[in-house]
Every structure is written in structure tokens, then in C-alpha cells.
Nucleic acid binder design. Sequence first.
RNA 1: GGGCCUCUAGCUCAGUUGGUUAGAGCAACGGACUUUUAAUCCGUGGGUCGUCGGUUCGAUCCCGACGGGGCCUACCA
Length: 498
Amino acid sequence: MTDEVNNSAENEVDVPEQIEIRLAKRERLNALNDAYPVSLPITTTIDAVRAKYPDLEIDVATGETVGLAGRVMFQRNTGKLCFVSLQAGSGERIQAMLSLDKVGEEQLELYKELVDLGDHLFVEGEVITSKRGELSIMATTWKMAAKTIRPLPNLHNDLGEEFRVRHRYIDLIVRDRAREVVQIRSKVMQSLRNTFNEDNFLEVETPMLQTIHGGASARPFKTHSNAFDTELFLRIAPELFLKRAVVGGIDRVYEINRNFRNEGADRTHSPEFAMLEAYQAYGDYNSIADLTQKLIQNAAQDVFGTQLVELEDGSINDLSGTWPRISMFESLSEAAGEEITPETPIEKLKKIAEKVEIEIDHPLHGKYVEELWEHFVKGGLEKPTFVIDFPVDTSPLTRDHRSKSGVVEKWDLYIKGYEQATGYSELVDPVIQRARFIEQVTLAAAGDPEAMKLDEDFLKALEFGMPPSGGMGMGIDRLLMSLTGLGIRETIMFPLVK
RNA sequence: GGGCCUCUAGCUCAGUUGGUUAGAGCAACGGACUUUUAAUCCGUGGGUCGUCGGUUCGAUCCCGACGGGGCCUACCA
């Protein structure tokens, strides 16, 4: 402890004045009693007292004595009577009063000297209302619950975005909405799990460290295992392991966990993000679309009590009803004003792209179709919409369409213009899957850094027989964005910052 | 990856067309005050103006590099 003091003296030039002063107060408190007591005689919470006395008259005494603690948010000290607003973790506040005749001169002076904004303060006293009608604790004693060394930012201006992200713990203390978003996220997770439980899905956890990354097209983060002396990848998707689970007879399986992709970060992308994937044996892309709609609608209903969700900007995101399913090729043809099919020559697609001035540099026909679709159709989608039947060459893990040639049974769900989820009738034929992987390996050899690798063990699993299945993946952070209208860095409590 | 903008006190921000001591509100420190609600009143202290370099008699200000952040664009299931 003395070392600490010496260190802070050595660093004096670097320590801001306010921290210096608070460190001295901490010393004082430790000398008198304890700046960080291990326990306190707490009898109730701020929330409980508020709930118990919702509307007392002005200037009444309840006769009930309580001991409670909270963070000091405002102080109004007069000569012989001090007011202090204490805040619970929930954000609920209550006023405590310390008067000369109740706590005595010494305790009142020590209070004024040693208690700062931001400190955790314990008070014991009677629940009363003040002469202005404010519900208060008339303290008979006070104790420091935890001394704060750094000053809280002032509460009268909004904090800057960067400060909030880098100091989320402060954001949570001072901003109601920050706390609310954490609660919403927790409740959404609960709701998703409830919906899965009702449908007899099992939640599992599959590897995050993988020797071969698969299940999506993205650049991975690389790391190294000392024990195995081998290169490992942080997973970009759990897909190939969840399918192994289905092969093993876990017929309804889901996982909610983190994926990592070594790509750009912006308002809708984070290098690490929470992903939900679910697989349903003897289902297909229709049944999994039904499930996806139910998951999201239940979440809105459970968390907000409505499927008409109000967003940050005041607009309403209408998640109600049955969501339309539109064909990618048909909706593109209609919007572009000419017939586009899987057979349309790539040269014609290039011409259309040139005409509307979008640049595409990719060898795949399907890539052109998807880019054109995004240009012509995506922005016009109002309600949540399943876009179905994708080009085959950009969907290596998806089964060919049962009746249409050149497309696969895949959908993307768009909500508010963002890709929210994707679903497949899963490709379960090991021979076709192997051929698709080999195409990907060819692309990789041609320099596409996001092409998939050939996973022999996964193919072996398929060779043991995977039942026909529907599967889907949904970004949890994006779901929170759809339900709140916030950016991804606000839905993740501690987003990566440099 | 390309372009543009930005960084001043613990926090939110002014400001300096290059000139002696860089300001405000809240916060802090000293004082007054027994019913305040962002309490009030009097007084005081607090800054490597992101970092390093250049131009200049003189740089927080102009220029360059670097670092942090933002926006646009490109890329991205």
C-alpha cells in the first residue's frame, strides 16, 4: 500500500489534479475505517423502496428504517443538511438526506469532505418524503461502500460516441438507453432459446478453434497452437460441425455463439459477431424459413409486447404477418425490365451492369446476378422479405432446386434493407458436395482469398449419411439492430476498438 | 485500398486571420447556507492545444509524417 502511494507521488506530474485529490480521500477513508468494505448492513434495494412507496404525500415519515447503497449521481450540500441522489445498477434513483441533528457534526463534516460524485455510498435511515415530496432516506449513518478515484463525466452533456464505446462501463452508468440495450439483448437471447426449446431443438457448442475453416466465404483470423505445433483458425461459421451433429442424429440442433471474420468493420460489420445457426432434419428451406420468422416475431413479442417495433429514429419496423417470399431471378427480371435467368449469358449481365454503372469484377455468373439484384431490388424492400432461389455457383453448401434448374434452394431474409439471415435446403449428397468443394479450391487457386477449403473429415461425415435438412444462420447483432435501429457497435456491449 | 474531415481541461465544447497570461459550463479546491432536485452565492486552482519533425524572430494555429476517431468510396454471404 505504501508502495502505491510512493508510485503515485513519483507519477505526480502525470496524475490529474482530481485523481490526486480523490486518492488522498481514499487514504483518509482507509485510516478512518475502510474505503472498500467487504460487506455492509444492506436490508433492501433502491428499486424495492421505490416500488413499495410509489406515491407518498409530502413531508411524511414511514417509520421504516432501511440500509441501502447506490452510486452518488448528484450532491446538494447546504451547511447543516445534505442531499444526495443514489443510483442503483438498474438506473433507479433515490434521494438520501444527511442532517446535522441525525448524523452529528463529525459525520456530517466527514461526509462533505470525503464523498464525491461517482462514489458508492451506503446509508441507513428512515424512509421519508422531503418537504418537496421527494422520496428520501433520512440517514442516521453513512459509510463509504466503494471510493471512486476518477471523476464521472458531467451528466449534462451527451458523451461522445468514441468515449461511450471505449468506456462502456461509464456509458452504462450515465445513459439509460445503454442499460436498456443490454437488457433487450439479454431478453432477445432468452426468447430465441425459448422458441427453440418449444420446438425440441438442442443447443450445442462446436469448436471455435478449427484446423480448417469452413461454412462460409470469409477471411479467417489465424493463430497457432503450441501444443500441436500447428496453424489454427478462429471459426468463420459453425456450419460444418453442426451438420456433423445432424449426421450423428442430433436432428434438431442450434448454436448461438461467436464467429470471427478478418474483414472490414463498419456500421453493419464487426470482426467478431454473434451468430445463430440451426439445422432441422427432415426440414427444408421452407420449414426453416417458417422457423426463422417465428423466432424473430416471438422475440419482438416477448421483448416489446408487439410485432410493430419502434426504432431509435422513431420509425416503426413492422414484423407482423406472413413475410413474402420472392424469387431472386423473377424479382430481378421485373425490376430490370428484361428477362434474366440462370441461362442468361454473362455478357448480357455485364452489359446491364455497365448500363446502370455498377462495376463487377468476378468470374462467377451468380455473382453478377446477386450484384444486379442488390442494385435493382434490395433497396425497395419494405417489409421483411425472403428472397429465394439463388444462383448455384455462389452457394456451394446448398442443394439444387427440386424443380428449377440453375438455382439452389436458398433464401436470404432482408429486414430494413439488411441481410438478416440465410437459409438452405442443405446439400447432403457427399459426391456433389465434394465436386462443389473442388470448384471452390479452383477459385482459391485462382486467387480468391475467401473461397472455401476442402474439408475431408466433413465430407467423410456426409458419406455416412446426412438426412435431408433445412438450415439457417442469423446474425444476432443484426437482429438487435433490426429490433432497435441502432448501429452494430451499440448492440455489442464491448465492440473491438483499436 | 482510395478520398475528405477531425483531435483544445476529468466531461461537453468555444477560441487563436501566427504574437506576452488559451476561455465557458459542469466537475475539483476554499468559504457561506437545515428542504435541495443540473441547488444557490463569493473566491481559487487546473492545459505538453494527439505525437514527432519542418517553416518562422515567434507555432496550439501554416506544412509534413505518424497515431486515434469519423464520413464517403471500394472490398465483404
